[in-house]
Computed example of a mutant assay.
Amino acid sequence: DSVGILFENPKKNITYDRFIVQPVREITDFLKNNKSENRFLFISANKGPFIFRKYMEAKYLAEKITKRQNKNNLIVYPGLVFDSAKTSSIVITLPLRILSHIPLLNKVIIGYLPIKRVTLAKEISKIIDGGQSIYTKRR
Protein backbone atom coordinates (compact mmCIF):
# COMPACT_ATOMS: atom_id res chain seq x y z
CA ASP A 1 0.00 0.00 0.00
CA SER A 2 1.79 3.10 -1.17
CA VAL A 3 -0.79 5.50 0.23
CA GLY A 4 0.03 5.04 3.89
CA ILE A 5 -0.68 6.92 7.09
CA LEU A 6 0.58 10.44 7.71
CA PHE A 7 -0.89 10.89 11.18
CA GLU A 8 -0.81 8.54 14.12
CA ASN A 9 -3.90 7.73 16.16
CA PRO A 10 -2.71 5.70 19.14
CA LYS A 11 -6.28 5.31 20.46
CA LYS A 12 -7.08 3.33 17.30
CA ASN A 13 -3.67 1.61 17.34
CA ILE A 14 -2.65 3.49 14.19
CA THR A 15 1.02 4.19 14.82
CA TYR A 16 4.08 4.64 12.65
CA ASP A 17 5.68 1.67 14.36
CA ARG A 18 2.71 -0.59 13.55
CA PHE A 19 2.23 0.56 9.96
CA ILE A 20 5.81 1.30 8.88
CA VAL A 21 8.46 -0.34 11.06
CA GLN A 22 6.83 -3.62 12.14
CA PRO A 23 5.82 -4.78 8.62
CA VAL A 24 9.39 -4.16 7.42
CA ARG A 25 10.78 -6.14 10.36
CA GLU A 26 8.43 -9.04 9.67
CA ILE A 27 9.20 -9.18 5.96
CA THR A 28 12.97 -8.85 6.33
CA ASP A 29 13.02 -11.40 9.18
CA PHE A 30 11.08 -13.83 6.99
CA LEU A 31 13.51 -13.34 4.10
CA LYS A 32 16.52 -13.75 6.39
CA ASN A 33 15.17 -16.79 8.26
CA ASN A 34 14.23 -18.54 5.03
CA LYS A 35 17.56 -17.66 3.43
CA SER A 36 15.60 -16.26 0.53
CA GLU A 37 17.44 -14.76 -2.41
CA ASN A 38 14.44 -12.53 -3.06
CA ARG A 39 14.83 -8.83 -2.62
CA PHE A 40 12.51 -6.50 -0.76
CA LEU A 41 11.37 -3.11 -2.03
CA PHE A 42 10.51 -0.53 0.62
CA ILE A 43 8.59 2.63 -0.20
CA SER A 44 10.12 5.29 2.01
CA ALA A 45 9.67 9.06 1.71
CA ASN A 46 11.79 11.66 0.01
CA LYS A 47 11.33 14.42 2.60
CA GLY A 48 9.07 15.43 5.41
CA PRO A 49 8.49 18.78 7.08
CA PHE A 50 9.25 19.17 10.78
CA ILE A 51 5.68 18.32 11.76
CA PHE A 52 6.28 14.85 10.28
CA ARG A 53 9.52 14.30 12.20
CA LYS A 54 8.24 11.09 13.88
CA TYR A 55 6.94 9.82 10.53
CA MET A 56 10.35 10.37 8.92
CA GLU A 57 12.14 8.77 11.88
CA ALA A 58 10.01 5.64 11.36
CA LYS A 59 10.84 5.68 7.63
CA TYR A 60 14.60 6.05 8.39
CA LEU A 61 14.46 3.13 10.84
CA ALA A 62 12.64 0.98 8.29
CA GLU A 63 15.30 1.90 5.70
CA LYS A 64 18.07 0.77 8.06
CA ILE A 65 16.31 -2.53 8.68
CA THR A 66 15.80 -2.99 4.93
CA LYS A 67 19.47 -2.31 4.10
CA ARG A 68 20.77 -4.42 7.00
CA GLN A 69 18.81 -7.47 5.85
CA ASN A 70 20.14 -7.40 2.29
CA LYS A 71 22.25 -4.73 0.61
CA ASN A 72 20.48 -5.52 -2.65
CA ASN A 73 17.06 -4.60 -1.27
CA LEU A 74 15.51 -1.59 -2.97
CA ILE A 75 14.30 1.63 -1.39
CA VAL A 76 12.16 4.12 -3.28
CA TYR A 77 11.89 7.78 -2.19
CA PRO A 78 8.71 9.34 -3.56
CA GLY A 79 7.09 12.59 -2.49
CA LEU A 80 3.58 12.43 -1.10
CA VAL A 81 1.67 9.58 -2.78
CA PHE A 82 -1.94 10.24 -3.66
CA ASP A 83 -4.81 8.44 -5.33
CA SER A 84 -8.42 9.28 -6.13
CA ALA A 85 -9.49 6.19 -4.16
CA LYS A 86 -8.27 7.94 -1.00
CA THR A 87 -9.87 11.39 -1.13
CA SER A 88 -7.93 12.69 1.86
CA SER A 89 -4.68 12.11 -0.02
CA ILE A 90 -5.86 14.38 -2.84
CA VAL A 91 -6.86 17.15 -0.42
CA ILE A 92 -3.45 17.05 1.29
CA THR A 93 -1.55 17.22 -2.02
CA LEU A 94 -3.57 20.02 -3.60
CA PRO A 95 -1.59 22.94 -2.06
CA LEU A 96 1.71 21.32 -3.07
CA ARG A 97 0.52 20.78 -6.62
CA ILE A 98 -0.55 24.43 -6.85
CA LEU A 99 2.74 25.70 -5.38
CA SER A 100 4.73 23.56 -7.82
CA HIS A 101 3.61 25.86 -10.65
CA ILE A 102 5.11 28.99 -9.02
CA PRO A 103 8.65 29.45 -10.43
CA LEU A 104 10.62 30.20 -7.23
CA LEU A 105 8.60 27.99 -4.90
CA ASN A 106 8.80 24.91 -7.11
CA LYS A 107 12.52 24.59 -6.28
CA VAL A 108 11.81 24.75 -2.56
CA ILE A 109 9.12 22.07 -2.61
CA ILE A 110 10.67 19.73 -5.20
CA GLY A 111 11.42 17.10 -2.56
CA TYR A 112 7.79 17.08 -1.45
CA LEU A 113 6.15 16.93 -4.86
CA PRO A 114 3.17 14.58 -4.88
CA ILE A 115 3.08 11.57 -7.16
CA LYS A 116 0.03 9.59 -8.28
CA ARG A 117 -0.01 6.04 -7.02
CA VAL A 118 -0.29 4.66 -10.58
CA THR A 119 2.71 6.76 -11.68
CA LEU A 120 4.73 5.49 -8.73
CA ALA A 121 3.75 1.93 -9.61
CA LYS A 122 5.14 2.44 -13.12
CA GLU A 123 8.38 3.86 -11.69
CA ILE A 124 8.69 0.90 -9.33
CA SER A 125 8.16 -1.52 -12.21
CA LYS A 126 10.93 0.24 -14.13
CA ILE A 127 13.25 0.06 -11.09
CA ILE A 128 12.58 -3.66 -10.59
CA ASP A 129 13.39 -4.23 -14.26
CA GLY A 130 16.77 -2.50 -13.72
CA GLY A 131 15.83 0.87 -15.19
CA GLN A 132 16.84 4.29 -13.91
CA SER A 133 14.51 6.44 -11.82
CA ILE A 134 14.80 9.67 -9.87
CA TYR A 135 12.98 7.86 -7.05
CA THR A 136 15.93 5.63 -6.10
CA LYS A 137 17.67 8.54 -4.35
CA ARG A 138 16.56 11.38 -2.10
CA ARG A 139 16.20 14.68 -3.91
Rank of each mutant, 00 (worst) to 15 (best):
E63N: 15
V24A: 07
K12E: 15
K64F: 01
R18I: 14
N38S: 15
F42V: 09
I5F: 03
N9Y: 00
K67L: 05
N33G: 14
R68S: 11
V3Q: 01
K12V: 11
F50E: 15
N46G: 04
M56N: 08
I20H: 02
E63Q: 12
I51W: 15
E26S: 07
L41R: 02
P23K: 01
P10M: 13
T28E: 08
P10H: 13
L31Y: 05
A58M: 08
E26I: 05
A62G: 03
G4T: 00
I27A: 12
F50W: 15
T28F: 03
N9T: 00
F52G: 09
Y55P: 05
D17C: 12
A58G: 02
F30S: 14
N73A: 10
N72G: 07
F7T: 15
K12R: 15
P10Q: 13
E26A: 11
I51L: 14
F19W: 12
P49Y: 01
T28G: 07
R68A: 11
R18Y: 10
R18V: 13
P23V: 06
K32T: 13
T15C: 13
K67D: 07
K35A: 14
R39Y: 10
K71M: 14
N9F: 10
F19K: 10
N46M: 10
L6S: 10
K59E: 01
K35N: 09
R25M: 09
K32C: 05
S2H: 11
L61G: 00
Y60I: 02
I20Q: 11
I5Q: 03
K12F: 13
F40C: 12
F7Y: 15
N34P: 06
I20T: 07
F42R: 05
A58P: 04
F19Y: 14
I5H: 04
R25I: 01
I20R: 02
K67C: 05
F42E: 09
E8W: 00
P23T: 06
R25Y: 07
E63F: 12
K59N: 02
E63R: 03
S44G: 00
E26Q: 06
T66E: 04
L6A: 12
K54T: 09
K67I: 12
S2Q: 12
F42Q: 07
K64A: 13
Y60D: 01
K64M: 11
M56R: 02
I14M: 06
F52W: 06
V3H: 02
Q69F: 12
K47Y: 13
N34R: 09
